[in-house]
Amino acid sequence: MSTVTIADWPQDVFRSLKSHDVRQIAYVPDAGHARLIELARADNAMRAVVLSSEQEGVAQLAGAWLGGQRGALLMQSSGVGNCINMLSLPAHCRMPLLMLVTMRGHHGEFNPWQVPMGQATRSVLQAMGALTFEVDEPAKVGETVNAAARMAFEGQALAAVLLSQRLIGAKTFGR
């Protein structure tokens, strides 16, 4: 893993989530989220929940909101497809849902099986009424997550930050 290209944006994301009092982190791992997951798991004020499938996190965070806590759902773009119908729950109930999505299927993707869902991710989210925020510069990740979190929690909206493969680097499996 190259620390030069990764920079410190996961730390910026973590700081932003803390500043918005996010207490539940639901995730299906992605390499791009690895550091953020570690930070969340090490924080005593956060509960990091590993999911079997991404739509579980949509329902979990609806329950968290009912109980007075804020959350964030971490997944890769393939996981967005698993969430589609469950997004009806926060959309209809007007509950906030902050999603941080690491993109696959773009920008030199090594694995063509990731391309269909990766290319459809933004459209699918928008079709379900989510606000989308795309970011591909490390220095802008923190402020973008901040903006999305504010619109989610203040506006009881679905908000997804799409973290470009340019931030993470295309997975090559060593090739």
Binding site: V49, A59, A62, M86, S88, L89
Partner: peptide, 21 residues
């Protein structure tokens, strides 16, 4: 909190609520 949709989600909604409370 009676669900009218979100099939497959009742148990996980319960988890999020239980962790928050």
């Amino acid at each position: 909190f009676p669900l009218w949709g979100a099939m497959g989600g009742a148990a996980m909604l319960g988890l999020g609520l239980a962790l928050a409370q």
